[in-house]
Design a protein around this nucleic acid. Sequence first.
DNA 1: GAGTTCACGC
DNA 2: GACGTACGTGAACTCA
Length: 875
Amino acid sequence: MSKKLVLIDGNSIAYRAFFALPLLNNEKGIHTNAVYGFTMMLMKILEEEKPTHILVAFDAGKTTFRHKTFSEYKGGRQKTPPELSEQFPFIRELLTAYGIAQYELENYEADDIIGTLSLLAEKEGFDTKVISGDKDLTQLSSDKTIVNITRKGITDIEEYTPDHIKEKYGLTPIQIIDMKGLMGDASDNIPGVPGVGEKTAIKLLKEYGSLEKLMESLDQVSGKKLKDKLVEFKDQAIMSKELATINRQAPIVIELSELEYEGAENEKLVKMFKELGFNSLLDKLDTDVTETIELEDMKYKQIDTVDQDIFAKENGFYVEILEDNYHYADIVGFAIVNETGHYYLPVKTALASEAFKKWAEDESSQKIVYDAKRSEVSLRHHGIHLKGAEFDVALASYILNPSESPDDLAAIARQHGFLIVQSDEAVFGKGAKRKIPEETKLAEHLVRKADVLVALKEKLEQDLWDNDQHDLFSSLEMPLSLVLADMEYQGVKLDTVRLENMGEEIKSRLAEIETKIFELAGEQFNINSPKQLGVILFEKLGLPVAKKTKTGFSTSADVLEKLASKHKIIEEILNYRQLGKLQSTYIEGLQKIVNKETNKVHTRFNQALTATGRLSSTDPNLQNIPIRLEEGRKIRQAFVPSEKDWVIFAADYSQIELRVLAHIAGDEKLIDAFRNDMDIHTKTAMEVFHVGKEEVTSNMRRHAKAVNFGIVYGISDYGLSQSLNISRKEAGEFIERYLESYPGVKEYMDEIVKDAKAKGYVQTLLHRRRYIPEITARNFNLRSFAERTAMNTPIQGSAADIIKKAMIDMAERLREEGLKTRLLLQVHDELIFEAPQNEIERLKKIVPEVMENAIDLKVPLKVDFSYGPTWYDAK
DNA sequence: GAGTTCACGC
DNA sequence: GACGTACGTGAACTCA
């Protein structure tokens, strides 16, 4: 077996982690961000590299042999912040728990230890991986040694092989040292030659090979200024090179055999993680760790005959279904935990029991559940209408922190310190190996889950109160889960014949286009392969390369569109892509998932996923059915009412996000515009371009529309420049002018960012929160992104709140009025119903009324609606 | 099976 | 001065 050595630059990685992550605190107020980042990195390395040997090297003390050469080496460097210093002991302890060797050496830096050991390892036939945040280490790269340098954060790395260095700099690894000697390194206070930067250094080295050879041939150097500098600073350059050279002969007294990695002491790790408050990392430890810890015996009773006395007023109730599509999956078992005891109910027993059904449908018997909607829908397939599910742990967790909400009950439990239940993956396995274990194991697992539900409710409910989010939970998300359950269970009818005909037509058109493309290309290839397509377009046909992805040429639509005038093949390819998308995703995709007996599709709305509070939709995703291009829009002709002579009735909010913005920001002009029901894009164009209504050109309006779009989605100047195909500078100016035009909005944007920095989160009108820790990041990108998130989330999230409220109100209103109309879908700002003809007139009044009055804002909400025999016609 | 690229909606 | 830039789902390809 081959030997694999991993060498980690401990100080460098700790620094990286510290600066990449916000200052986390554990319960005792100890800073833990560097330890956390370090741990993440370690876990990743261990998993990906699977080393046989491993060592973490640290710098020892303040001075090294390099200071003898140059006393100002690393001078001017900022002192290590105390918040980081205090974390080193924990990192050391962590490494001990992992059973990973550590080493430091008086007078030497971690670099030198790593350099020395990697040289030794090469001689002994190891494959070595060096991990650092310091690019200096790349000089160690060789055919046996790969150097990984962290790029941003701590887990994103760039891999330096000799080939990669050649490609990136045109140099060999050894020449990296020469480059450093010439250009210096501000961070280490290595002077180099003034006026020589990376570009010049590379040029010189490509020509002369090394610093020494360059110095020998100084007279040949072109450019007087450069030559003078090189002459003047010759000694300084040579010294700089010396400083930058890693010592590969350090007097280390440790042997490679001592670095053998035998695995972590899991119990120590679990203990440490708990102390440090790394609950989320506990999850990532080997599953057998969570199996062994603190799992006290679970006493439970298996129920063979359901009797009233196993029920109480408040019950933890867990419904287990293994597959994720609960519309088609079987229930695997139930568990109930309450003050009377712990019970496991086999599926057959429960479903055959009248007592069970009666209890499940009893509103007054409260159930604490995990994923209410999932439980409701699956029970309904067995004729049981779950009632009294008053606390959904998954939804509560999501509301408390939508970004961190795990998708497994055990993980939520762990997050809150309850280590009494295993992960589903540990019990059922994952992927192809997922299966139901023997019944006692299953029973115990389910009972534990029901048990932890009860414990979690207590904790989560308190947290909801503390955050002033209880109302959002109990009056919005909980009732909404019932509405969504109805929608999903009801499903949407498809005209499968229509779908099939469209498929046939597209198929033949695709074949035609394919022939044309092959003719134009002069050969056959897979058009769907970006790789092959790239070769054809940019190598064979020699079209100009505008953009590259990390694996090759970019062939995305925006790139291709710019090439359209250069070759006839482009248009065909874009056409092929568009039709291919319709065929594979929509026609075939829907055909795959439609219920063959009922011709209905039953989507699942994920109510606990997005960071903003929007819903998402899967299997099929009915929130991205084409509409923009007529060609694709025709897909909507296949969406029809499920009953004869009914219609599809669609109602959408007009500019809900911008209206919300007007309200939140309290911007006079924006409020005024909406009160007067103006065309908001025209209005914005008037403001931004300082023109009258009549002078707004279609191009101005288009630009204004894109800026409004940008505000709603929180895109950057770069994003705006992409969508308008203008420069980033121009895009930035547009945004600035927008903010000048709407001073209230500008003020809001400034305030919300300040607020987010102070509180660490932002919130919506109905108190939905989103935590934005990166808002204090030192990294410009992370911080900018966080700032845009802070500005955008209250807008988009409040809009999501409002339509959710409208859905609940709508369901209630339909019930009150005894209408047969059914709500089928929600697509972020629109609701789609199916309705009998004779209810249309009522709906025309009720739907806008309910939707527009879902909340009271400083501006009116406006709803447009339409209806027709198919979804296509409801436009 | 995981990661990448592309494309659809809001 | 560079970084890599709304979110979500799904398909096909590619590599291991």
